[in-house]
Amino acid sequence: MMLDQVPALRPGFRFQWEPVQNAHVLLYPEGMVKLNDSASAILAELDGTRTVEQVVARLEQQFPEAGPLKEDVCEFLADALGKHWILLQ
């Protein structure tokens, strides 16, 4: 994965907050995944214009105590790509 690529949710996927589950979920045709906090924080930053590098920078700004996040974010995005949740442009 290149840092200048733009990740976006695959068409038909929706990321939203579910109060009853007290969690963010990813919704897709006849499916739903309940997300943990770090997955939610990353997916919330994918707006279809930000590059991987920008997503990492924004997350590092939000969570300064977490230290460098590039590796974690890239690992999650690679996994999400493998599951066909996201596309890279």
Binding site: Q16, E18, V20, Q21, V25, L27, E30, G31, M32
Partner: peptide
Amino acid sequence: AMGAAQLG
């Protein structure tokens, strides 16, 4: 309101 998220 009860929490249903998927609707068919």
